[in-house]
Design a protein around this nucleic acid. Structure first.
Lengths: 175, 175
DNA sequence: GTCAAATAATTCGTACACCAATAATTGGTA
DNA sequence: TACCAATTATTGGTGTACGAATTATTTGAC
C-alpha cells in the first residue's frame, strides 16, 4: 500500500494519517457514549477524579491535558448525570473540589477503556519491536511539533504535571 | 506520571503521544487562524478545492476525510470570507459545485502549511528512512484503529452501533 | 408514467476545545 | 488599612465534528 515511488508525499502522508487518527478517536468517543452514557473526555476526567480522590478543577485540567474552560463543560455534564459532585472549598473559597459520587465510581469500574479497545489489543498483539517502533515514531512527532511553540501546549511529562505559562505573548515567531 | 519502569507502558505511550499530537494540531490551527484568517480545516478544504478544481461538496468530504455535515460549516465560513463560491450544478441540481475564487487561490498560494511548518521542515530534515518509519507507523496506527468497527451490525443492545471517539482527548495516562 | 429508493446538501442538536474576559478570593505590601 | 497582583472557576464566542432528520432532485423498477 505504500508507494515509495512518490517523492515528497511524506509530509502529506503524515498529515493525512494524523487527521484520520483524530477522526477515529472522535468516532470511538461517540461509540463509547452510546455504550456507557459518557464520552471519552468525560470518562477520562472521571477516571482521574476517582483515582486521585477529590481534587480541584484545575488539577483535573492539568492531569488530562485540557484547558480549564474545557474542563468546566465536561464537569457540568458529569454533574448533571450525577457522576461527580462539586463543592466549594472552605479553606480557599476560590477552589471547587470535585469528587466522584458512588454512581460515578461504579460507572468507572465497569466502563470500557476510553480509547479504542481494538487499538489497545491489536497493539499488544504486535511484535514487541514493532510496538517500540510505533511508540518511538509517535513520540518523535510530538517532539517535532512541540519544538516550536513550547509554551503553547502543556506537555513534557516528568515531574509534576506541566502547566502552561501564559504570558509571553510576543508577537512574532514565524508564521 | 509515566513510569518507564512499568513493563507494558507501550500502549500508554502511544495513547499519550496521540493525545498530545491531537492537542498540538488543534493549537496550531488556532495559531494559523491568527495569521492567515483561516483555520487548518478550512485551509485543508480550500487546498483540495484549488488542487482539484470545481468539485462537489461530497467530493471534498471524501477528499479530506470529514463528514458532509462538517464540510457544510467549513464551506459556509470559506464562502463568507469570499474564498470559495457555491453553484448549483445544471445537470444535476442536487449537486453543489464548489470552486475557489481568485482570492481563495491567492490565499492558498501564500498560506503556511496546514500542518506545523516546524513539523514539516523538521520531518524533511530527517533521514529518508526515518521519514518513512514515521509515516508507516502513523498509517499503521490508523489501520489498527479502523480495522475493527468497519461495519459492526447493531444487533445487540439498543440503538445502532456505537461509535465514538472524539477528536479531542483520549485518555492519556492511566485508565 | 409513476412511485419508491437512492443521492446530495443542508439543518439541528450535542459535545468538545480553545482563548479572552470576568468575578470572586486570597495573599502580600505599601 | 487599602490596594494590587495572582489564582481559581466560570462565561461567552468561535470553530470544529458528528449522527439523525429534512428537503430537493434524480434514478430505477414496475
Amino acid at each position: 500500500m505504500l508507494d515509495p515511488s512518490v517523492p515528497n508525499a511524506l509530509d502529506l502522508r503524515v498529515l493525512t494519517a494524523l487527521r484520520k487518527i483524530i477522526r477515529s478517536v472522535d468516532l470511538y468517543s461517540r461509540e463509547l457514549k452510546n455504550k456507557s452514557e459518557v464520552t471519552a473526555p468525560q470518562l477520562i476526567c472521571l477516571l482521574a477524579i476517582v483515582r486521585n480522590g477529590p481534587m480541584s478543577a484545575t488539577s483535573v485540567s492539568r492531569e488530562v491535558f485540557l484547558s480549564p474552560s474545557t474542563i468546566v463543560g465536561i464537569l457540568d455534564r458529569l454533574e448533571i448525570k450525577g457522576l461527580v459532585k462539586r463543592e466549594r472549598s472552605q479553606k480557599d473559597r476560590r477552589i471547587v473540589m470535585v469528587s466522584a459520587t458512588p454512581l460515578g465510581t461504579t460507572l468507572v469500574a465497569r466502563a470500557p477503556s476510553p480509547i479504542q479497545d481494538v487499538l489497545k489489543r491489536r497493539l499488544q498483539e504486535l511484535p514487541l519491536r514493532e510496538q517500540e517502533d510505533i511508540s518511538r515514531s509517535l513520540e518523535r512527532v510530538v517532539e517535532l511539533m512541540e519544538a516550536d511553540h513550547v509554551e503553547a501546549a502543556p506537555i513534557l511529562e516528568l515531574g509534576p504535571i506541566p502547566q502552561k505559562t501564559t504570558q509571553e505573548d510576543k508577537g512574532p515567531q514565524e508564521f
